[in-house]
């Protein structure tokens, strides 16, 4: 998880408190797990150590939530570099769903019943994502689209897998 770079991104609009950083993150990713306060402050501390951010204002009564952080030139550069880098395709990692389907077939369970259950729950989720209207932050639909399209990809894989299994069964018979 590139939390450090994300925090840099959250600071790119201007100096902010740790609390603002957390709030910003949660509004960027409304459907993901919220960022923990502890994680915000350890990250900011590490970034300050690496001279990627600097403290521009520290309220006298102290407390970390009163400290205002800003990006340094080095931090800005790091953020730009991160954004410019494409993501490597995941190396052969196997998803929970793949394990389940393989296990279903190997144990002789009913694969098409599994397909029905999986389609019901995924399509239902896609439906929810679609009906969540563009409320709140303007970028949240981006995340929802991402999730929906990945669910779609999983379903298509499942369809194909079960189609081929059925064909094999029919030819074996």
């Amino acid at each position: 998880m590139a939390t450090a770079e994300l925090v840099l991104g959250l600071l790119s609009a201007g100096p902010a408190h740790g609390y603002d950083v957390k709030r910003g993150h949660d509004s960027w990713f409304p459907d993901s797990r919220p960022l923990a306060f502890g994680q915000v402050y350890t990250t900011l501390g590490r970034l300050e150590r690496d001279e990627l951010v600097e403290v521009v204002d520290r309220a006298s009564e102290g407390g970390p939530e009163r400290t205002v952080y800003a990006l340094t030139a080095k931090g800005r550069e790091r953020l730009a570099r991160w954004l410019a880098e494409p993501i490597e395709p995941a190396p052969g990692g196997v998803d929970e769903m793949v394990r389940k389907v393989v296990a279903t077939i190997r144990t002789g369970e009913d694969a098409s019943a599994y397909l029905a259950r999986q389609r019901a729950i995924y399509l239902h989720r896609i439906r929810e994502l679609k009906s969540a209207e563009a409320g709140g932050d303007s970028s949240s639909w981006l995340v929802r689209d991402y999730v929906a399209l990945h669910l779609d990809a999983d379903l298509r894989w499942l369809d194909r897998a079960l189609d081929r299994i059925t064909e094999q069964k029919e030819t074996n018979r």
Partner: peptide, 26 residues
């Protein structure tokens, strides 16, 4: 298209001229 099917209240899936499954989405 799954993304289109997801708008429905119910999915009816055919295979070889029979209903393979029917699931409720709403």
């Amino acid at each position: 298209d799954n993304l289109i099917a997801a708008y429905a209240d119910r999915e009816v899936r055919l295979r070889d001229g029979v209903v393979q499954h029917e699931v409720r989405l709403s």
